[in-house]
Design a protein around this nucleic acid. Structure first.
Lengths: 188, 188
DNA sequence: GTCTATAGCTGGATAGAC
DNA sequence: GTCTATCCAGCTATAGAC
C-alpha cells in the first residue's frame, strides 16, 4: 500500500504476495473493504498509542512533530486518507482515528500551551494541532510524490522552531522549580 | 470529480454527463490521462493567477488564506493530488503547479515577512508557505470527508490570527509613511 | 464528428471439489 | 482451510460504418 499506492491493493495481488490465492483471502476477509479496515484498525491503534507516548514525553512537541513528519509512519495514512475518499467503510474507520488523535492532541495542548509560553487566545489548541498535523502531512505527502515544494527547507525551519520552543519550555519549567520530566510522573 | 471523487471519473460517465458517448470522448481525449491533464492544466492556470492576484492585494496574507481554504476552489486539488498518486501523467502536471505556486508564495513572502513583523530567521518563507498551505489543505480535506477534527475552531483561530497580522502590517506600513496599497502600484 | 459493436483487461466475489 | 474454475461487472480503448 505504501510502496505502490492503495490502488495496487487488489485481492489477487495481496494474495499472491502472501503466497496464497484470491479466494482464500476472501475466506479470511469477505470483502476487500474488510481487509482495508482490519489493516487500518491495527495500525491506527499502534499509532494512537505512539502519539500518546509522544505527548507524554519530556519534549512533547518535538516528539509529536517527529512522529507526524516521519515518512515511514505517516506514509500509510497518506494512502489511507486518499483511499478513504472512495471507500465508505474505510472512511468511517479513518474518521474515528482522526477524531481520537485530534482529541488527544487538543487535550494535551490545553494544559501544555502555557508551558511553551504560547497564549491560547492567540494560538488555540485546535489551530496548533491542525497546523502541525497539516504541515507534517503536506511535507510527507509532497516528499512521497516528489513535488519540488521546498519541503526540506520547511522541515529544517520547523525543527529549529520546535527546538526554540522546547528550550523556552525547559527554562520556564525550571524557573518554576520543576524539572522537565515525563508528564506521567507525579506532579508537585 | 469534486462531487463524487476522482474515481467516479470514467470515460463512460464523463461522456454520458455531457450527452455524448465514450468513443467520442476518446476522439477528443485519446486517453483518460489526457482528460485529467487537460482539466488540471486549465484550472491550474486560473488558480496560479488567482494566487498571484491574492498575493498582490492590499491584504496578501488574508487573501491567500481565503483562497487556499475555500472548499470550492481547493476541493478540486484535494482530488487531483489523490488521483495523481497513481496517475504518472497527472502527477507531473500537479508537480508543476505545486512548484510554481510554492515559488510564487516564497518570493512574495521574502519581501513581505518584514512588513508583517515576522523574523525570517524564526519563520522562513518555506516554513510559512508550507504551514499555511498544509493547514488549509487539511481543513478543506477534513471538512470534505466529514472528519470531526475541530476544523471549524481551527479555521476561526486562523482567521483571528491573520486579522491580527494584517493589523500589525497596516500599522507598520503607516508608521513608515506608506498606505497599505496594492503591491503592483508604484512604490516610493 | 459521431455513432454501434466489441475486444481485452482487471477486479470482486462465489460455487463447489478436496 | 485451501484449492480450481468461473461468473459478472466496469473500465480503457479500438475498429469500422455512416
Amino acid at each position: 500500500m505504501v510502496r505502490s499506492g492503495y490502488a495496487a491493493v487488489s485481492s489477487r495481488r495481496v494474495a499472491a504476495s502472501v503466497g496464497i490465492n484470491a479466494p482464500l483471502l476472501h475466506y479470511y476477509f469477505p470483502t476487500i473493504d474488510d481487509l482495508f479496515v482490519a489493516v487500518m484498525r491495527r495500525r491506527a491503534n499502534q499509532y494512537v498509542e505512539r502519539m500518546a507516548a509522544a505527548l507524554a514525553s519530556p519534549e512533547p512537541l518535538r516528539a509529536w512533530w517527529e512522529l507526524a513528519s516521519d515518512a515511514g509512519g505517516a506514509g500509510l495514512f497518506v494512502e489511507a486518507i486518499a483511499a478513504a475518499n472512495h471507500r465508505p467503510a474505510l472512511r468511517i474507520e479513518v474518521g474515528k482515528v482522526a477524531r481520537d488523535l485530534r482529541q488527544l492532541q487538543m487535550q494535551t495542548l490545553t494544559s501544555l500551551l502555557d508551558e511553551y509560553g504560547l497564549d491560547p487566545d492567540e494560538f488555540p489548541p485546535a489551530l496548533v494541532a491542525a497546523a502541525l498535523q497539516g504541515l507534517a502531512f503536506g511535507l510527507v505527502s509532497d516528499q512521497m510524490a516528489g513535488y519540488e515544494t521546498a519541503h526540506a527547507e520547511a522541515a529544517a525551519g520547523m525543527a529549529k522552531l520546535i527546538a526554540r520552543l522546547e528550550q523556552q519550555r525547559a527554562r520556564r519549567l525550571s524557573a518554576r522549580g520543576r524539572i522537565p520530566a515525563r508528564r506521567t510522573s507525579a506532579r508537585p
